[in-house]
């Protein structure tokens, strides 16, 4: 099988690991929390390393007036999974078609979704960090509690670390694979592709059709 096609199949399948691994992880570290408070964000839920993590974070946040994190009120968690399924399906389709512009199109779409996702994540973080209850027990002039988009930052007594988790890394790798597939495809002439693809007549047919278009 062609390298580009394998890479695209890999890219599509990698996206499906988002159903297993969290996208992102925010870790809060303070002396009283020797193991850290670890918040994990999946495509369809928010949790942590303990069953009570979310409650524990909400308890900590309420002192400074941050809104409680309520997964049921975050619409993204209800539809992200469909986007992932659609992207994985499109990725497999692109693998099947195995044409450079199709592959590039998919990669760019994934990149765009990734950037949009990060922007959305930033907006949520901004909202949680700035939109504070005026009746909060602890109020510090000019202090916001927005966690870093990526990287680490000190928020009062906590050091907040925000980094992609396995799912996020898989998504990034998926993107790399797609661009790699495009790059390989771009180096290889299309007629060679056609000549070496005899083992997959249907795909060849599709290719021929695509070339004819």
């Amino acid at each position: 099988m062609q390298t580009s096609r394998i890479l695209m199949i890999g890219a599509a399948v990698l996206l499906l690991t988002l159903f297993i691994f969290p996208l992102w992880q925010i870790t809060l570290i303070a002396p009283q929390y020797p193991d850290g408070v670890v918040l994990k964000i999946w495509i369809d839920k928010i949790g942590g390393n303990e069953p009570g993590t979310l409650q524990n974070i909400n308890i900590l946040n309420h002192y400074v007036g941050m809104k409680p994190i309520e997964p049921e009120s975050i619409p993204e968690l209800s539809y992200l999974k469909y986007i992932v399924i659609v992207m994985a399906t499109l990725g497999l389709l692109a693998a099947w078609i195995n044409r450079k512009m199709v592959i590039l199109g998919w990669a760019v779409l994934l990149l765009a979704l990734g950037v949009l996702g990060m922007y959305d994540f930033y907006l949520w973080e901004y909202d949680y960090g700035h939109n504070l209850d005026p009746n909060a027990p602890i109020k510090i002039e000019g202090q916001a509690y927005q966690p870093p988009l990526i990287g680490q930052k000190t928020l009062l007594n906590f050091l907040a670390k925000s980094y992609p988790h396995l799912g996020g890394m898989a998504m990034f790798t998926s993107m790399i694979l797609a661009f790699l597939a495009y790059w390989i495809k771009n180096k290889t002439k299309d007629y060679e592709t056609a000549n070496t693809s005899n083992a997959m007549p249907v795909a060849d047919g599709m290719l021929a059709q695509a070339q004819a278009d």
């Binding site: 303990e50 069953p51 009570g52 409650q55 524990n56 308890i59």
Partner: peptide, 14 residues
């Protein structure tokens, strides 16, 4: 009265 305070600790933190 006999008042029974049934107190549940909702905390789930160590």
């Amino acid at each position: 009265d006999k008042v029974y305070f049934h107190v549940t600790n909702l905390e789930q933190d160590f």
